[in-house]
Amino acid sequence: MEQYKISDPQVLKVVAHPLRVRLLGLLRTDGPATASELGRKVGESSGSTSYHLRELFKYGFIEEDPERRDGRERRWRPRHRYTSWDAGEMSASAEGREAMRIMHLRQAELVRRMMEDFDAAEWSRDWVDAAGMSDHILSLPPAGLREFSDKAEELLRDLAAKYAGDPETRQVDVWYGAVPLSKQEEEQ
């Protein structure tokens, strides 16, 4: 259950729907759930969440959890831990570029929501000191940016393995993104 690599822009658009991306994220972080449970978490009716869960199922993002039946209602679980796509391949068409743009905006919305929800008063000093955001403006060629991304992925895997048994381990959401500045921004 590691990665779902999307090559079809239509499939990327399916998961980029605001409610679907939230539902999939909740299943990945909180574990299997029913449409009703998810509806309560996101403030939607179970009918609405059921519809969007069926769409996620139809395109292979989730599956029914056979080990955890909940009476008449299905419990859903993610089929993959991550969703990815080949940006070069996806950007070859207008439809693919639009799907990526929508997905990137959904990801940015999630980061905003997570930062709004983070309350330093609820966490120890160690967690508060370790959490946060920063930004850097560097001059790199595409190869340098790819190297950063590859090394960041490797470092995250190594750290997750290293601290897997630590009693202070908690789920954390780690984001990184990098895009070149537009020509106008670069000139300012």
Rank of each mutant, 00 (worst) to 15 (best):
L138R: 08
L12E: 00
E153A: 14
R125K: 15
P142A: 11
T29Q: 05
Q3P: 00
S45F: 09
S48T: 15
D126W: 05
D119T: 05
L24T: 06
Q171M: 11
P142W: 04
I102K: 00
R97W: 00
Q107A: 12
E63C: 10
A35M: 09
G31M: 07
R69M: 07
V42P: 03
L38I: 13
I137F: 05
V111R: 09
P78T: 15
T49Q: 05
P142Y: 08
D126H: 10
E73K: 11
E153V: 15
V21G: 02
K183V: 13
D129K: 12
S7Y: 12
Q10M: 06
M115A: 14
E44A: 12
Y82M: 08
S46K: 11
A178S: 14
W76N: 04
E44V: 10
Q10I: 04
D8G: 01
H52N: 13
E116N: 06
A87Y: 00
Y176L: 15
K13I: 00
S124H: 11
L26D: 03
D70I: 10
L56W: 07
S36K: 11
P142C: 05
Y4Q: 08
L56H: 01
D30V: 03
M103I: 03
H136W: 14
S36M: 10
F57N: 10
S139V: 14
D30R: 10
S84I: 06
P18W: 02
E67I: 07
R157Q: 13
E37S: 08
M100E: 01
L145C: 13
H80W: 15
Y59V: 09
Y51A: 04
D119G: 02
D150E: 12
S124D: 13
R20A: 07
E73Q: 13
H136R: 11
S91Y: 00
L110F: 03
L140E: 06
E67M: 13
G88C: 06
R74C: 06
Q107L: 09
D166G: 05
E116Y: 12
E185P: 01
D150S: 11
D65G: 04
H104T: 03
A130Y: 08
T83Q: 03
Y51W: 14
L24F: 15
E186K: 15
P167H: 10
A94M: 06
K41S: 07
A120W: 13
S50D: 15
P180Y: 09
S84Y: 02
D30N: 14
D166N: 14
R72I: 08
L26C: 09
I62M: 03
R170F: 09
A108S: 04
V15P: 01
K151W: 08
G43Y: 12
V128W: 05
K183G: 07
E154G: 12
V111P: 01
D8I: 02
L156K: 03
